[in-house]
């Protein structure tokens, strides 16, 4: 029995004509994509109302595989572009999928300000501890001591705790999972899509081709097994307490889930007031 790929159960959600995707063997980004698409399917989400935006880098290619309105911006500007979309048409659900370098180095300013405004947007960040697309350079989440192409003697810079940064900047929903926690990740994505406000999901993803190789972490399977060993689920703790030390301990879970007035709603409210007044 041979089945045409057009009958793939996720065909309606994926641009199957673009698969196989560009990601390396064992890369965690394909898992993140599955999880996102599974969440859409579980929610029976109206694809006419979805806009997926990404920046530059390996994760930046994610938007190109999703069969909704989608846009691949310049490096670091995914959240800024997405803010324009959401404010211009508040009926749309805007999801940003991008990497740690794109969102937190070159795009860091837009991240903290979008979180501060509490604009309705789900940001999913694949954190693989380095710049994969450009060949494995030091990134804002590279752990102390890790070797990369641009930290050949070991990294001496303190890394960001992304979930903590999101929470401290004002995000109303924050969770962290690894690509191994694929069912829990899917559930968090569903929550993030439904949540009104700025939601952030950090996904620890193995990059065996560059980060894994320079740090002798083995192949993707070894890195996934390592994540299995070291990850600890702690729901509800404030993410500044959620350790993220690859090789030692990575705390995952649903960290923040609070309510705050949402930005695009407030914009619409005073537009209504001004137009009637």
């Amino acid at each position: 029995m041979t089945r045409a790929i057009e009958e793939h159960p996720l065909t309606g959600y994926l641009r199957i004509d673009r698969v196989p995707h560009i990601w390396c063997e064992g890369c965690g980004l394909g898992i993140l994509l599955n999880s996102f698409v599974q969440a859409l399917k579980d929610l029976e989400f109206d694809m006419d109302k979805l806009v997926v935006v990404s920046g530059i880098g390996c994760t930046g290619r994610a938007s190109g595989y999703i069969k909704s309105d989608a846009y691949h911006t310049t490096h670091g500007r995914a959240i800024a572009f997405a803010t324009g979309v959401k404010v211009a048409n508040p009926d749309l659900k805007v999801v940003v999928i991008s990497g740690d370098g794109d969102l937190f180095a070159i795009g860091g300013n837009h991240f903290i300000h979008a979180a501060r405004r509490n604009i309705d947007m789900l940001v999913i960040c694949a954190n693989n501890f380095n710049y994969g697309m450009t060949g494995g350079q030091l990134g804002p989440t590279t752990p102390i001591g890790s070797r990369t192409q641009t930290s050949p003697y070991g990294n001496i810079e303190q890394p960001f705790n992304l979930s903590a940064l999101a929470a401290c900047s004002g995000a109303v929903y924050v969770s962290r999972w690894t690509t191994l926690h694929v069912r829990r990740l899917t559930e968090s994505i569903k929550k993030g899509i439904h949540k009104k406000g700025f939601s952030f999901i950090e996904v620890i993803a193995p990059c065996s081709t560059v980060y894994g190789r320079y740090n002798r972490l083995g192949d993707g399977l070894d890195m996934m097994n390592d994540l299995k060993e070291i990850s600890v689920i702690k729901h509800g703790i404030y993410p500044t307490e959620a350790t993220i030390e690859p090789g030692k301990e990575i705390v995952v879970g649903d960290f923040v889930d609070i309510e705050k007035p949402e930005y695009s709603d407030m914009v619409q409210a005073f537009i209504k007031e001004q137009m009637e007044g």
Partner: peptide, 12 residues
């Protein structure tokens, strides 16, 4: 679980 963990969209 295999369909979610398949990074290459190769299993359904």
């Amino acid at each position: 679980l295999c369909t979610l963990l398949r990074p290459d969209i190769a299993v359904s």
